[in-house]
């Protein structure tokens, strides 16, 4: 059972990673006896499972994902949101408009207008329908202040880190409130513009360096240096 790669190796599609009884994890497939990479990414081996964590790539919606969408259109009863994916997302107007009001009689633009950003959760996504969203819940809803930045959705797992370690580090060091949308949009709200800028800088660094080990230490060092200076 030869294995040709190790953790943190960068691989490209078609690269043969191993041969034999290994198990193909995400973005790895078996061709006969060979395990081959299915995307450009970083190798992770855990026991017999070999997976590739993509370095680039589109956002594929998943039920339960917290995402940030931008209103691009509305119909009499729904808002349509761009969620940085090849699928449009639908937010029912009843999610926003108070229940005692008649949705059809309301001017939807009064509540959410084209261009507004909304933190939502994916409630339904399958082959046959658009992405359905909700914005009822803790930390969900329209964003009016702070800053919104966009990173490659493939980097989100690194930005969050193991059990949230990375994002918690940034939150702690910058004292910012941060909502990470799985679709690559991130909302930062700090006590002042400087702390928001610092949080943004850290996130940008992760976006660029997500494929290099020792990321947490580098981010920690950067944050402390910047704060000290």
């Amino acid at each position: 059972m030869p294995i040709y790669v190790k953790d943190w190796d960068i691989v490209v599609p078609g690269e043969v990673l191993a041969e034999g009884e290994y198990i193909a994890g995400p973005y790895v497939y078996k061709d006969g006896n060979k395990l081959m990479a299915m995307a450009i990414g970083i190798v992770e081996c855990k026991k017999e499972v070999i997976k590739v964590v993509p370095l680039q790539g589109p956002y594929i919606p998943k039920v339960g994902d917290v995402i940030i969408g931008i209103v691009v259109d509305y119909s009499p009863t729904t808002y349509i949101l761009d969620i940085n994916s090849s699928y449009k997302a639908i937010l029912q107007a009843s999610e926003i408009i108070p229940p005692q009001r008649n949705v059809l009689a309301e001017d939807l633009a009064k509540y959410l207008d084209v261009g507004d950003a909304v933190i939502c959760k994916v409630v339904r996504f399958d082959k046959y329908s658009d992405v359905m969203l909700t914005c009822k819940g803790k930390d969900l809803g329209k964003i009016t202040e702070g800053r919104l930045i966009k990173v490659n959705p493939a980097k989100i797992p690194r930005l969050i880190g193991r059990k949230g370690s990375m994002i918690n580090l940034i939150k702690k060091e910058t004292e910012c409130k941060i909502v990470v949308g799985q679709n690559g949009f991130i909302w930062i709200k700090g006590k002042d513009s400087n702390s928001e800028a610092l949080a943004e800088k850290a996130i940008r660094k992760i976006d660029e360096e997500a494929h290099i080990s020792g990321l947490t230490q580098r981010i920690q060092l950067m944050l402390q240096l910047e704060k000290g200076g």
Binding site: P13, G14, Y29, M36, M38, A39, P54, G57, P58, N152
Partner: peptide, 11 residues
């Protein structure tokens, strides 16, 4: 295509 992160069986 590969650099866009699109899943591919091979180049």
């Amino acid at each position: 295509l590969a650099s866009a992160g699109i899943p591919m069986r091979d180049l």
